[in-house]
């Protein structure tokens, strides 16, 4: 597949941003500088970036509890994300959502979600809206191997197959549903097999390989845009940190398993291949890393300098006020 070198460099930059953002989150948590539950995306960057590179702000995505990477891949600004994590009024959700509900509807990002499996029906609805308007836009639903066992996934996949809406169901199979291994929570290896029930293609790719994800997602998204219906795209990937937070408190993963996956780290293999292709130089890689780290530090500084969410606004945003006669609050 021929991908413009500019696109490849942008993908790499974005992947570095995802990695550095969540690595910093992990340290902030360990320093007790952020509150609440934070689920880190480290290790899975090739999936969000490989998919979202095909999307515009008019396309929709739904995310998961592990949602920072999805928002960043869709164009989210680290400043407003850290501000949200710090509970500041300058955050994406004015401090009312936190990590698990981080969202930017202007970017078509319909929210991280605290409920496993909540995304598929919502993405179905967004895809339905694209279909209803025939506007050529698509919806992408990110969800995990755990969510593929929820009834919501099956209901939404069935309805998407029936209505042939422009939906791409992207399963980030990171081999663990919370703390339970995939083999202990479902009787299949390839979640893409479940597509067969819903009359849609089921594709499994290496989720550590941004090229593979980009190519498969490109086909699925193009298919959706052409009005040919949904696709289930399974990306096999790996979660570097615990289900929530950094340190594994409840389980010990096989060190060989961890080493085998980290040997294929997307942040190492992708730039290596770009350099082999002549799409990027080591100097550029170093510059991207240092610039991203500086951007992250500036974003953290912005967040910490922002005012904390003011209780005076506690009850705002529960309802949309009436805009016209006939509506009422």
């Amino acid at each position: 597949m021929d991908i413009a070198h500019d696109t490849l460099r942008q993908m790499y930059e974005r992947m570095v941003l995802l990695r550095e953002f969540d690595e910093r989150c992990g340290r902030l948590m360990q320093e007790n500088r952020t509150k609440g539950a934070v689920h880190l995306y480290c290790g899975e960057e090739a999936v969000a970036v490989g998919v979202c590179t095909h999307l515009s702000n008019d396309d929709y995505i739904t995310s998961t509890h592990r949602g920072h990477g999805h928002l960043l891949a869709k164009g989210g600004d680290p400043k407003f994300m850290y501000a949200e994590l710090f509970g500041r009024s300058s955050g994406y959700c004015k401090g009312k959502g936190g990590s698990m509900h981080i969202a930017d509807l202007d970017l078509g990002m319909l929210g991280a979600n605290g409920i496993v499996g909540a995304g598929p029906p919502i993405a179905l609805g967004a895809a339905f809206a694209c279909h209803y308007r025939q506007d050529g836009n698509v919806a992408v639903c990110f969800f995990g191997d755990g969510a593929s066992n929820e009834g919501t996934f099956h209901e939404a996949a069935n309805m998407a197959g029936l209505f042939r809406v422009p939906l791409v169901l992207v399963c980030e199979n990171n081999l663990y549903g919370e703390w339970t291994k995939q083999a202990d929570h479902q009787p299949i290896d390839d979640i893409a097999d479940r597509a067969a029930s819903y009359d849609m293609p089921g594709v499994t790719v290496d989720g550590m390989d941004a090229f593979a994800v980009y190519e498969a997602a490109g086909e699925a998204i193009a298919r959706a845009r052409r009005g040919e219906g949904p696709t289930l795209l399974e990306c096999k990937t790996y979660r570097y940190y615990d289900h929530v937070g950094v340190d594994f408190g409840k389980i010990v993963r096989d060190p060989d398993e961890v080493a085998a996956w980290k040997a294929r780290d997307p942040l190492e293999q992708f730039p290596r291949r770009l350099m082999e292709m002549g799409a990027i130089t080591q100097t550029e890689v170093d510059r991207i890393t240092s610039e991203t780290r500086a951007r992250i530090e500036a974003a953290v500084d912005f967040a910490e300098a922002s005012p904390v969410a003011d209780p005076a606004f506690l009850l705002d945003d529960v309802y949309t006020p009436a805009a016209a006669e006939g509506a009422h609050v």
Binding site: Y60, T62, L105, L110, A118, P120, P121, I122, A123, L124, G125, A126, A127, F128, A129, C130, Y132, A139, G151, T152, E155, A156, N158, M159
Partner: peptide, 15 residues
């Protein structure tokens, strides 16, 4: 679940 979720997503997308 999909009926109610469809409503959520479609409304968030402007319908």
């Amino acid at each position: 679940s999909a009926i109610a979720g469809l409503a959520v997503g479609a409304a968030a997308a402007g319908l």
